[in-house]
């Protein structure tokens, strides 16, 4: 048994760390209810300006349209990414040999050059391929990421090989094993990957802008960034927009966190 003082110390640590982490969101929520000048002056108590900030935000930008766009693109990217990368990660690990391990290392290189340097050649290529102003041009480069592939590869390492053998004896095909055995067992990995991929897709900024700079394809990060571009920034309204931009990821995390942190181990046994 853990002794009581140790238990108290543990809770104290977690509470302090949580408060430290959650503080900015609270600050943001408070700032969203205040007038810009009060935000600048560092007012820390909730104000009465929320509705005005909302009205100003709606008047200046197409909030719900941008929200819809962000959801649409993020969900498409997340689903495609999860399918493509989990297949690859599984392939790399379960059927591993020298060549595949080598290829994995090479694939990792793909993330090691700053995007600034690859963006311009990528843009040129997309233009030649006729992908400018298309959803495909926006989505294609972000589907397959070394990070997700490696995440699934590393997780697949703990997937018991005897399950695969047993399934093969039962006559299941390789793809069926992946769908029926691997997918349900690795629920926690999928949930974690989904959260992170959704978040990255949601926050993706520069590339969508490069591929199609049009009012009708505006996403939430673009909307937020537009609000800070002028000579005078309305901080109250900005914080409200930022809050709208942050909440979807937080909600998704909150819904999924039990899945990846309290997954029932041995579900397939």
């Amino acid at each position: 048994m853990i002794s009581l003082p140790k238990k108290i110390a543990q809770y104290a640590f977690l509470i302090i760390f949580s408060l430290f982490s959650i503080f900015p969101l609270i600050w943001m929520a408070i700032a969203a209810t205040n007038q810009s000048i009060d935000v600048i002056r560092g007012k820390m108590i909730p104000g009465t300006y929320l509705i005005e900030n909302y009205k100003a935000l709606i008047a200046q930008s197409d909030l719900w349209h941008a929200m819809g766009n962000s959801f649409k693109y993020s969900i498409v990217v997340t689903l495609l990414s999860l399918i493509v990368c989990s297949l690859a990660g599984y392939g790399f690990e379960i059927y591993h040999d020298k060549f595949k391990d080598g290829l994995m290392s090479v694939i990792l290189l793909a993330m090691m050059v700053p995007f600034v340097a690859t963006m311009i050649p990528l843009f040129g290529m997309m233009a030649k391929m006729g992908f400018l102003n298309t959803v495909a041009g926006f989505v294609l480069p972000s589907i397959s990421t070394p990070f997700l592939i490696m995440l699934f590869r590393q997780s697949a390492r703990s997937f018991p090989h005897d399950i695969i053998e047993a399934a093969r004896i039962d006559g299941l095909g390789e793809f069926q094993i992946f769908v029926r055995m691997f997918f349900p067992t690795m629920r926690s990995t999928y949930a974690a990957a989904m959260t992170i991929t959704f978040m990255n897709a949601w926050n993706n900024y520069l590339w969508p802008k490069v591929i199609m700079n049009k009012p009708e394809t505006q996403t939430m990060p673009m909307l937020v960034s537009n609000l800070t571009a002028g000579y005078v920034t309305d901080y109250g309204m900005l914080m409200l927009a930022v809050l709208f931009c942050t909440l979807p990821t937080v909600i998704i995390f909150f819904c999924l966190q039990k899945s990846f942190a309290e997954g029932i181990t041995g579900a397939v046994k």
Binding site: K209, K214, Q218, S225, N226, T228, A229
Partner: peptide, 8 residues
């Protein structure tokens, strides 16, 4: 008008 910050 396409709202585009100078930084972009």
């Amino acid at each position: 008008v396409v709202e585009t910050p100078w930084d972009d």
